[in-house]
Lab assay of single mutants.
Amino acid sequence: MASQGTKRSYEQMETDGERQNATEIRASVGKMIGGIGRFYIQMCTELKLSDYEGRLIQNSLTIERMVLSAFDERRNKYLEEHPSAGKDPKKTGGPIYRRVNGKWMRELILYDKEEIRRIWRQANNGDDATAGLTHMMIWHSNLNDATYQRTRALVRTGMDPRMCSLMQGSTLPRRSGAAGAAVKGVGTMVMELVRMIKRGINDRNFWRGENGRKTRIAYERMCNILKGKFQTAAQKAMMDQVRESRNPGNAEFEDLTFLARSALILRGSVAHKSCLPACVYGPAVASGYDFEREGYSLVGIDPFRLLQNSQVYSLIRPNENPAHKSQLVWMACHSAAFEDLRVLSFIKGTKVLPRGKLSTRGVQIASNENMETMESSTLELRSRYWAIRTRSGGNTNQQRASAGQISIQPTFSVQRNLPFDRTTIMAAFNGNTEGRTSDMRTEIIRMMESARPEDVSFQGRGVFELSDEKAASPIVPSFDMSNEGSYFFGDNAEEYDN
């Protein structure tokens, strides 16, 4: 783990906690998980779902989305002020799938948001429990990260689609708070800032007046979040320049895209947490497990152990491969979309394939898809080993990566060399080191050039047997250095459309 220093740990961010010791953190995270579980059980009762239907990941996603929508204050306010045809701002819903006479049927349900809020609060001892809501947002974000390569979004903001390893959390809503900021990748933060800068260039009043003052505060806050992700002084200094700019424009845009590229080699610290679907927490609570009393951590053995003992089902389209669908969801559960496939294969105990080789589309089923041909199958979400999630980018030494994705962002704290394609990355730096950030740029390029592919990161860190909950005997895996390590390699994943 990167030293926490003055930073709060993510469990504290996750639970809005002030400084807590490890036991208190485990208890408050457990409380959050228990609340999600209780809410899910109650919703299944309301909807009269069978046990099997309640364990269907598509039903879980609909129920999670309903509660997130019920608590989305800004959108609710907007919907009330701008009524649109056929949208009731006070209601929320989605597809629920039921097994009827041996076939899967889709039923569109509609609930009062007020009623959903009441059920959620009741499951969370009367609190709004925003930490639990954020947790579900991060699960949705991790699922998107594993399912889609955001080529269009990258290109629109002047970045290269091969930089997708920097895009963790790119679909997280803005209201996801400190826990959300911690899991956002460098590219995601750059993209958010670039969008602001572009608006400022096109709209003279963007930075002016009372609204402009708020915009400015948001801009500086985002700059500080991004600065905190960088691990070298030169990158941090460049972020200070971007933040202090009187009138952010093209120079800042250039600096930010430069920094994003540099992060492929001088990786930023991005938190990883295993956020599971509500249909995993519900049955665990129903079986009598007391998360608050037992304590829970999002970055240790607990999620692995929970998945070892969970039964989750998914709808499967006619030509999809259930094992591939399982891999997709497994990666999402562990926030591992940008991790090295060699490491993932070792931990999972079966070969993890790149996205383009998977015969599976996303987990969600569109409303126009034919239910007649839908089957369902068990998702295999178990693992051979477990490993500690990392909050750091690993040290800054790398190795060759593949054509589709030119770097990785480690999820697990496991000893290995970190793949990246130096030639491709360095070719993108057209040696432009003039301007006010020239000395920093020169320094950053120097550090990137001296990074050695064969150097090892996370020295001495290994994986653990599932029986080793105290992480007492690390097993340090050895990897084939020459092997392909990137998930979005030469990829044809669908595009994420909101």
Rank of each mutant, 00 (worst) to 15 (best):
Q4T: 11
G5I: 00
D16S: 01
G17N: 08
R19A: 01
S28D: 00
K48G: 14
Y52M: 10
N59M: 05
N76F: 01
G86Y: 14
K87D: 03
G94S: 02
Y97R: 00
V100Y: 14
K103D: 03
L108I: 13
E115C: 06
A123F: 05
G126L: 14
T130H: 06
A146G: 12
R150N: 03
R156V: 01
T157W: 01
G158L: 07
M159N: 00
D160C: 02
C164S: 12
M167I: 10
Q168F: 00
G169P: 04
M189T: 12
L193S: 11
I197H: 03
N202I: 10
N202W: 01
R204Y: 01
G212W: 07
R213E: 04
R216I: 12
C223K: 08
L226A: 03
K229Y: 08
K229Q: 14
Q235I: 03
Q241D: 02
E244D: 10
R246D: 08
N250A: 10
E254H: 06
D255Y: 12
F258G: 01
L259C: 07
A260N: 03
R261A: 04
S269R: 00
C275F: 08
V285H: 12
R293K: 13
G295R: 11
P303K: 05
F304L: 13
N309Q: 13
S310P: 01
S335E: 01
E339Q: 11
L344W: 05
F346D: 12
I347P: 01
G349N: 06
G349H: 10
R355T: 09
G356M: 11
I365N: 13
T373W: 01
S376V: 01
L379S: 02
A387I: 00
T390H: 03
S392N: 12
R400Y: 04
S402A: 07
R416F: 02
L418C: 13
P419S: 15
I425T: 15
T433P: 14
G435S: 10
E449A: 07
S450F: 06
P453L: 13
P453R: 08
D455F: 05
F464Y: 10
L466I: 12
S473N: 13
V476M: 14
M481F: 10
E484A: 09
E484P: 02
Y487W: 10
F488E: 08
